[in-house]
Amino acid sequence: MSDDEAEDADRQDGPAGDASGDATEFFVAHRNLLFTVAYEMLGSAADAEDVLQETWLRWVRVDRAEVRNERAYLVRIATRLALNRLRSVQRRREAYVGPWLPEPLLTAPDVADDAELAESVSIALMVVLETLGPTERVVFVLREVFGFGFDEIAAAVDRTPAAVRQIAHRARGHVEARRPRVTVTAGEARAALEAFRVAVETGDTQGVLAVLAPDVVLVSDGGGVKQAALRPIVGADKVARFIAGGIRKTGASVTGAATTVNGNPALVLSVDGEMDGVLAAQVADGRIVGLYFVRNPQKLTRVGEETMLSRR
Rank of each mutant, 00 (worst) to 15 (best):
R172L: 13
A280W: 08
L142T: 03
S253G: 09
A48C: 13
Q282G: 12
S44A: 11
V278A: 08
G98T: 04
R241P: 02
R92A: 13
Q282R: 15
Q227E: 10
I153S: 00
S253M: 12
I233L: 14
L81H: 04
D50H: 15
T24Q: 12
A9V: 15
V28E: 11
A257S: 15
A163Q: 15
T107I: 08
V145N: 01
V139S: 01
P15E: 10
A191T: 15
V67F: 00
S310M: 05
Y73T: 06
L142G: 01
W100D: 01
A78I: 03
R92Y: 14
K226N: 07
T185G: 15
N296F: 14
A48L: 10
G222M: 02
S88V: 15
R68H: 07
A23C: 09
N264P: 02
A6C: 07
D63Y: 05
E7T: 04
D10L: 15
L105R: 03
W56G: 09
T255I: 09
T24P: 00
E116M: 14
W56C: 03
E152F: 05
Q282N: 13
A191F: 13
E188D: 15
D237N: 11
P297E: 08
R241L: 13
S122K: 04
F148D: 00
A154F: 09
G235T: 07
V303L: 06
D204K: 05
D50M: 13
R190L: 08
Q166T: 15
G21D: 10
E119S: 09
V208F: 08
N296V: 11
P109K: 10
S122C: 06
L300Y: 11
V51M: 06
D113Q: 14
E176P: 04
L291H: 02
F148S: 01
Y96F: 14
H174Q: 11
R85C: 02
A228F: 12
L218N: 01
A210G: 03
T255F: 04
M126E: 01
T185Y: 09
G273L: 10
A228D: 01
V303P: 00
A236V: 09
D18Q: 11
V89N: 03
R85V: 05
V283H: 03
G251V: 12
E201L: 10
F35C: 06
S88Y: 10
W59G: 00
R71L: 09
L101T: 10
E119L: 15
A156M: 12
L269F: 13
V225P: 06
T250L: 13
R181Y: 04
F35V: 07
L42Q: 07
D13K: 07
R137T: 06
T307L: 14
V294K: 03
E144N: 14
N69P: 00
V157Q: 02
W59F: 14
E119H: 13
G263S: 05
V138D: 00
G17Q: 04
L34P: 05
N69M: 08
L309R: 01
G147C: 05
A192E: 02
A72K: 05
G273D: 02
R137V: 10
V239R: 01
R64S: 05
R312D: 06
P99R: 13
